[in-house]
Amino acid sequence: MNATHVLDVTRAQLFALVRRPAAWTIVAALAVLNQVFSFLIPYISYRSSDPSGFDAGATPEELLRGTLPAEIVPNTLGGFPVFAGALTLAFGAILLGSEYGWGTFKTIATQRPSRMSILAGQVLTIVTAVAAIVALLFVLSAVTSTAIALGEDRSTALPSVGHLANGYLGGVLILSVWALVGGVLAVALRSVALPVGLGIVWALGIENLVSAMADSVLDALQPVRDVFPGVNAGSLVAALTPEQIGTPPPGVSDAVSGGRAVATLVAYLVVAVLAGAWFHRHRDVS
């Protein structure tokens, strides 16, 4: 591996990524989902003055308080364990998997960087993109919540810098795991469609099903559940947002402690990178 070559790969990949319509489609979907579920629906419920309209467990006052700037950490991270996770998995799969469909991996592999430099550059690209996306989501949350606070004459105070920073870093960790798992699955399967399909079934279906069963009929499933990426993402979000107002979003639970969630997510990152390295090193490019 060579640091200059790694940065060459990262710069090249980011250059192509920001010009890619599919990437922006996913970013837009993430932003819209976040705005609709964290702000629009709670705010409309509050305005509609039907206290039992949307969220039976919350009073109108709680609904409004949940959309204010003080709550931007839970509001931004709420979707990360499930929906944003699935979308980000697709993002990673599209980013690394299209190289096989278009045959562009051979173009990349014949320039100069070694396969290990290419992998390091790809990982750096994904983490950089995720960091930018999470920052964008935080900014959009801040703008919307501030607008609501100004309109409703409420406090525009943001959470403390420490709280924001933890929330941001936690968010980057969670989405980096999803994106890298998607990317490495795409490398392993040399395809985009297959990992996206598998990832969505996993994130939206299997994790929910196993979690539900572990909570009800079969306690023995709990240790299995507790190593799932979505469950650990949800536990990290719960740990970062102790002051959750109303019902938590899907997947946000306290199945494991915050510390264990971070350790598990980091383990997923490491395993994904090692698996990617193995595939890049040992596979022929054809």
Partner: peptide, 16 residues
Amino acid sequence: YLSGRDNLRFVARLAG
């Protein structure tokens, strides 16, 4: 999705 020129810029970055 990239222009011919942008594809070459991409390759140029990779190759240094």
